[in-house]
């Protein structure tokens, strides 16, 4: 398979992750580290259920649900027990490591001879086309669903919560509840990404989530750079930006790897790219 096409496919698998980070980081302004654990959780739950029950819908639903529970727990610890958001996320992420390990019973589960979501649409005979179609369909569904939710009255309340807490409480919104629900949705999406990627790679691994938050953040920020340049402000446009950002990020990583750089440096390169993107606004200001 074409090297860059593979990168795009992997990128499509990571779009749910990008959306999840967009919600926690951009809408709620909470750097939610739970992500690293809930992404793995999604992969792990998927693998365990696929091995045991051979049911893709069940595996995917359970993964998303598990992610929602993990995210809500972080939200609960943050809002009700009044623990710093960053620390609340780290606590849940750390606890999830043990949960994931005990669910799997070992550190890695290969997905061989089990059905995966990419077996659907069997009428498309070309495997790559089939995977691509399925991933694009999932991406479009998520895009439409999220942009609709964020435009509803509930969505406006969610967006205002991360922006002006005093105002939104004066408007009758229970901000704690909003944060718990919001982090739940965010981590549900992240877990979905973990599920999609583990099925794509053909295994779930206890370490698959390490540094994943940076990957998501990088996607969101590259997308924002694009939307800022194009002066896009609508919610739909910003979500499309996340999709574009995720794909661009994957292509950059693929390009870097194609230069023959040792894959062991992948995380280092990822961090460097994200740092660069994060610094773009500062550098721009300094130049003006």
């Amino acid at each position: 398979m074409n090297f860059y096409l593979a990168a795009v496919m992997l990128g499509l698998g990571f779009i749910a992750l990008g959306f999840g980070i967009f919600i926690s980081m951009r809408i709620f302004n909470i750097p939610d580290i739970t992500t690293d654990g809930s992404y793995t959780l999604g992969g792990v739950v998927t693998a365990v259920i696929l091995i045991k029950f051979h049911s893709v819908p069940m595996a995917m639903a359970a993964s998303v649900l598990a992610g929602i529970v993990a995210g809500s727990l972080t939200g609960f610890i943050h809002t009700k027990l009044r623990v710093n958001a960053l620390l609340a996320g780290i606590l849940v992420m750390t606890a999830l490591y043990s949960v994931n390990l005990s669910l799997m019973g070992r550190s890695n589960i290969p997905l061989i001879n089990v059905p995966v979501i990419y077996d659907w649409f069997a009428f498309i005979t070309d495997a790559v086309m089939r995977q691509l179609t399925i991933l694009i369909l999932i991406t479009l569904t998520l895009l439409l669903l999220l942009s609709w939710i964020l435009k509803t009255d509930f969505g406006i309340a969610i967006r205002a919560t991360g922006n002006s807490e005093t105002m939104v409480r004066a408007m009758g919104v229970d901000t704690s509840k909003m944060k718990i629900i919001g982090l739940g949705i965010s981590n549900g999406l992240v877990a979905m990404s973990g599920s999609l990627i583990s099925q794509y790679q053909g295994f779930a691994d206890i370490n698959m989530g390490i540094g994943i938050i940076i990957l998501g953040l990088g996607s969101v920020m590259i997308g924002e750079t694009v939307t800022t340049v194009l002066k896009v402000e609508s919610i739909f446009g910003r979500l499309v930006g996340v999709i574009v950002g995720t794909i661009i990020f994957r292509l950059i990583l693929a390009f870097v790897l194609s230069l023959g750089i040792d894959p062991n440096y992948l995380k280092l390169i990822t961090a460097a790219i994200v740092l660069t993107v994060v610094c773009i606004p500062t550098l721009r200001k300094a130049r003006n």
Binding site: K151, D153, F154, G172
Partner: peptide
């Protein structure tokens, strides 16, 4: 909608 529920509909 200050005194109302913030529901899943576009207002």
């Amino acid at each position: 909608i200050r005194t109302h529920k913030k529901g899943l509909s576009i207002g």
